[in-house]
Design a binder for these strands. Structure first.
Length: 887
DNA sequence: GCTCTGCGCAGAGGA
């Protein structure tokens, strides 16, 4: 049986005499999740005492295969030979992180901070792995090499290599792979192979992707050289991790691992020095697996504490370490204890404190991501049915092979469940359960009535789960590191309040009919450090931004154009296009970039020199902030970074773009949606907001809006912009529904005739929906349609996705969406469904900025639909109703 | 108790 629950007490390990000699043991009290609520005692024997040493109160602990015994009338538990002890099992540790930690815990920490830079061996290694996978899927070697090298063209070009030289290099590794494959292929049927298998273990708290699995045993491919007789220790650790991932218990894990060192050439093999053949098999014993688990536990415990490793935890020798210099520099800058020592001067205390504060904030966010992994397996199917992170009960239709040995799987929906999964997403596709059945990482191709995904293996498609990714937090950590540890000291002086931002150069007229916009462009062009452009709804923020980019380009500057979302980046590129400027390289994935912007998208595949030149020569590069942290963009340099929707970015997220440029311009509105974060911490406030509060003189507010009528904009202007937001012209102010061609406003029912109105439909909230209210919303929309308003001119907004689905079902041809997804667009008529009836208990109503976004999407008419009592219970919403009432 | 996008996912290797 297994025991699991939070640790109540971990007693110090001690030595005892047993019938079999001297042994170590540690007693732990934990509160079991199931059954008895009282704490129970479990004794950890032998080397598990090392794990016991890591335990703290409230840590989640899992002990498998325990033995039960009675002691003085009390039931106690003890580890057996088959037991595994797992600290914080929900914290899924990556296999490569365990590998790094075994080398040295500081290697693990530094990898997290800095990421892996663009280097030839890494790029070639990736290509060889892809070719290996292709060979296993039965592909022709030369075809594979040609295509895989072409796919890596940009990286190869940036490194100054040619396709031919890389292909030659890859061929050498591939020869070793082919030779080895041919040995085994005679007695091996193709079905006993799996390549690139993504594995998740809820039991051991590990995740990773195995290069290959052959007859249930892990095969790990290495493209570097291994000149010793035995496999490298950390490589064995890596293979052992995959062995654990393939098992349900330590006892039935595969007992053999294969390491394929493909750089060990025929020449090496003929040398008298011994066996340097590429394939090295080694046995994986229970003791080794438990060692690997204890290493994994050390990481989980360190993450629980957010401890910074010193290097003394390992007996690795620093002088042989590739990270030695980085290690010493980081230790020196942050005044950390490090086995390698410190080098250089430490940063000012304010900067070290800032780093520490944001490091912790990002790591808290990482924990929240890990909580989402747990959802993959913790709930029963019935509970998952309510959960929008999965699509369940799909009915498998068929499967067909596609190019490259991959498969297209099709299925049909059997319910109308709402899910957050979208086309293009990477998901875990499974035949029933994402960690217990057959599961593969797959790409969603179609998500209509019929569901189509592509995956590496064929199986019956019955379920899709969101696959949580840590890349967002990883990138933010890199952004933080680069800004604080590698950042320009001159810039940091301003960021940390040691001097004021400066502006220089002559003023010019860029926009002659809007003073604030003109002032904003001037500020951006004249900024020596940064400029802040505050753009409330409808004020021409994106137009001003595009004008700014053009002015900078005219001055010969190289510009990085960035924003948090792909949608905002595309909008900015579109605004440039509207101003006749199209010399832009759009960096992004095919799926992320809007169809009509694909023409600007940089292809990564092709000829290395051409691809590299395309990026390096681009005057304007447009990319999301997360993409700015990618290996290729990270080594680009710009004069100015112009960041749109900056109010939606965390501070480290903003740095990802700002780090690449000498100066930066932030454009946004901190009175609209804040950054999307799960944890409650410093990440919630944007750098834009903090800087505008600290240096109001570095900011320009665009105060004239071109969107809303006077009546519509009034409440937002008063509540959020100190009454300073005004209609740009009398025409904007006085616009009416009847201005629209074919619209007869008199045909509307009386309660909808005022440009801002409120309707209480009755009904009751049922979870996050209110069906009666949804009916009424549909009726209201119908009234506008009947009065002659076009469908495309109407938008419906609801706070919850569930209500959005309810309303969409009633209005299939009208745009219905959540507030969050409506930001950045507008409609002539907006209907808002507030859903809540008893009170505004949901936190979604607490952030009034979300309401500001919803209210300011409307140009001519706005209808608020909700429960009057609930809305009047909060002063802010009460004022909103008064505004809607008083015409 | 809620909204949510981003990222070639994780791992490629150096001696």
């Amino acid at each position: 049986m297994n025991l699991r629950g939070p640790v109540v007490e971990a007693r110090d390990p001690r030595t005892v005499e047993t019938s079999r000699g001297t042994s170590e043991l540690a007693e732990v009290l934990l509160r079991p999740e199931r059954g008895a609520r009282e704490p129970v005692q479990v004794t950890l024997w032998g080397k598990w005492t090392g794990t016991a040493d890591l335990l703290e109160e409230e840590m989640d602990l899992l002990v498998t295969d325990v033995e039960e015994r009675e002691f003085r009338g009390e039931t106690q538990y003890t580890t057996t030979g088959d037991s595994a002890v797992v600290v914080e099992p929900d914290f899924l540790v990556d296999v490569t992180d365990i590998r790094g930690w075994v080398q040295c815990p500081r290697v693990y920490y530094l990898n997290k901070l800095t990421g892996v830079p663009l280097k030839y061996p890494v790029v070639k290694g990736t290509v060889v792995h892809e070719v290996f996978g292709d060979l296993l899927r039965g592909r022709d070697l030369e075809d594979s090499i040609e295509e895989r090298v072409a796919e890596a063209a940009l990286d190869i070009g940036l490194l100054g290599e040619t396709a031919d030289s890389v292909a030659d290099d890859v061929r050498q590794n591939a020869a070793a792979i082919e030779g080895w494959l041919q040995q085994g292929i005679l007695d091996d049927d193709a079905d006993s192979w799996r390549s690139e298998q993504t594995l998740i273990s809820e039991r051991f708290g590990i995740k990773g992707r195995a290069d290959a699995v052959r007859r249930g045993m892990p095969v790990e491919l290495k493209t570097g050289k291994n000149t010793t007789r035995d496999p490298r220790f950390q490589d064995k650790v890596q293979a052992a991790c995959y062995a654990l991932l393939l098992a349900d218990s330590v006892a039935d894990a595969p007992d053999t691992g294969t390491l394929l060192y493909t750089k060990n050439t025929a020449l090496d093999r003929s040398e008298a020095s011994g066996d340097l053949s590429p394939a090295k098999e080694f046995s994986i014993g229970g003791g080794f697996l438990k060692f690997v688990l204890r290493q994994r536990n050390e990481i989980a415990a360190a993450e629980f504490d957010m401890a910074v490793p010193t290097g003394y935890e390992a007996d690795a020798k620093c002088e042989y370490c590739f990270e030695q210099d980085t290690c010493m520099v980081v230790a020196g800058r942050l005044d950390q204890e490090s086995k390698a020592g410190q080098i250089g001067e430490s940063l000012p205390k304010a900067e070290r404190d800032y780093f520490e504060r944001f490091y912790r904030a990002i790591e808290e966010e990482r924990r929240e991501v890990h909580r989402e992994y747990r959802k993959l397996w913790e709930q029963s199917a019935e509970e998952r049915a309510d959960d929008d992170r999965a699509l369940l009960d799909l009915e498998p239709l068929d499967r067909e092979p596609v190019s490259g040995g991959r498969w297209r799987l099709r299925a049909r929906r059997t319910s109308e469940a709402v899910s957050k999964i979208r086309e293009g997403d990477r998901v875990l596709a499974s035949d029933g359960h994402p960690t217990r059945g057959t599961a593969e990482l797959a790409t969603v191709e179609e998500l209509g009535e019929e569901i189509v995904v592509t995956a590496d293996e064929p199986f019956d498609l019955r379920r899709l789960d969101v696959y949580p990714s840590e890349i967002g937090v990883d990138r933010q950590l890199n952004g933080l590191h680069d800004a604080i540890l590698r950042g320009d000291p001159d810039r940091k002086d301003v960021l940390f309040g040691r001097r004021d931002p400066e502006f220089s150069g002559p003023r010019e007229t860029y926009i002659d009919n809007n003073d604030a916009q003109d002032e904003a462009v001037n500020a951006a062009v004249r900024a020596d450090d940064f400029a802040l452009v505050h753009g409330p709804p409808g004020t021409g923020k994106t137009y001003t931004l595009a004008r700014t980019v053009r002015a900078l380009v005219d001055d010969g500057e190289r510009v990085l154009l960035s924003a948090f979302t792909n949608r905002a980046v595309d909008n900015a590129v579109e605004a440039l296009e509207e101003q006749g400027f199209t010399d832009v390289v759009r960096w992004g994935s095919e799926n992320g970039v809007r169809d009509d912007m694909q023409q600007y998208r940089m292809q990564r595949s092709g000829d290395p020199r051409e691809r590299a030149a395309e990026l390096q020569d681009a005057q304007v590069v447009a990319a999301t902030t997360a993409a700015c942290g990618s290996r290729a963009l990270k080594q680009q340099q710009f004069d100015v970074a112009v960041v749109d929707e900056a109010g939606q970015l965390t501070e480290p997220g903003t740095f990802l773009a700002a780090n690449l440029a000498h100066r930066f311009v932030l454009v946004g509105d901190h009175e609209q949606l804040p950054p999307v974060v799960r944890a409650e911490n410093d990440l919630k406030e944007s750098l834009f907001e903090r800087l505008i509060e600290t240096y109001p003189e570095a900011g320009v507010m665009l105060d004239r809006q071109y969107r809303m009528s006077q009546r519509v904009q009034y409440f937002s202007s008063r509540e959020f912009y100190g009454g300073e937001l005004r209609p740009a012209t009398g025409e904007v102010a006085a616009q009416r529904l009847s201005d629209l061609p074919g619209v007869n406003a008199d045909a509307l029912p009386p309660e909808l005739r005022d440009p801002v109105s409120f309707v209480d439909p009755g009904g009751a909230a049922d979870g996050n929906t209110n069906p009666i209210e949804a009916d009424r919303v549909a009726g209201i929309v119908q009234s506008f349609l009947d009065a002659g308003v076009d469908r495309e001119d109407i938008g419906v907004i609801a706070p919850f996705r569930a209500q959005v689905a309810q309303i969409s079902r009633r209005l299939p041809d009208v745009t219905v969406d959540t507030v969050d997804r409506f930001q950045g667009s507008s409609k002539e008529v907006i209907v808002i469904s507030f859903v809540a009836t008893d009170d505004l208990g949901s936190p979604i109503f607490e952030d009034y900025r979300r309401v500001n976004v919803a209210l300011t999407r409307a140009k001519k008419a706005l209808v608020l639909v909700g429960d009057e009592g609930a809305l009047r219970s909060v002063p802010f919403y009460e004022r909103m109703l008064e505004w809607a009432d008083g015409s």
